[in-house]
């Protein structure tokens, strides 16, 4: 089993040989869908070797030029956002959406405030 942290969230998946995942798990971890043409999202497909129905999600992520880091044991993986991805989102000026909990653990989603002006600010105890 491996824990994968990505823009899709944090999840525990049955990985083998590093981060080889079933098609379903690869989709959960990356948001991309395995099709005969390769891993696909919207109109884009990236060819990728498939072995016994599994793909190497880490290799796929590197093909996209996005950061992959893992712990020494290969149990926890981060499939990070690429610089181009973040810059494109910011250049479009639409506020990147997120969902985070309040003190009671209740989740709140930024985009649910559409219709209001929002002052989004950060702070920390440190």
């Amino acid at each position: 089993m491996a824990t994968v942290l990505s823009d899709q969230g944090a999840m525990t998946l049955a990985a083998t040989n590093g981060l080889w995942l079933s098609a379903d798990d690869a989709e959960r971890a990356t948001g991309w869908v395995l099709k005969p043409e390769g891993m696909c999202r919207d109109d884009v497909c990236v060819p990728l070797p498939v072995r016994e129905g599994r793909v190497d999600a880490a290799a796929f992520w590197r093909l996209l030029d996005r950061p992959v880091v893992s712990d020494a044991a290969g149990e926890t993986w981060v499939l990070g956002a690429g610089a181009a991805q973040r810059n494109a989102a910011l250049a479009g000026l639409m506020a990147p959406d997120f969902t985070l909990p309040d003190l009671a653990g209740t989740p709140h989603t930024l985009s649910s405030l559409r219709g209001k002006q929002v002052f989004l600010c950060t702070w920390a105890s440190w």
Partner: peptide, 14 residues
């Protein structure tokens, strides 16, 4: 029609 969203960047948790 205004809201403040204050984000605690707090890795030690709530």
């Amino acid at each position: 029609e205004f809201m403040i969203v204050a984000i605690a960047e707090e890795s030690r948790g709530a």
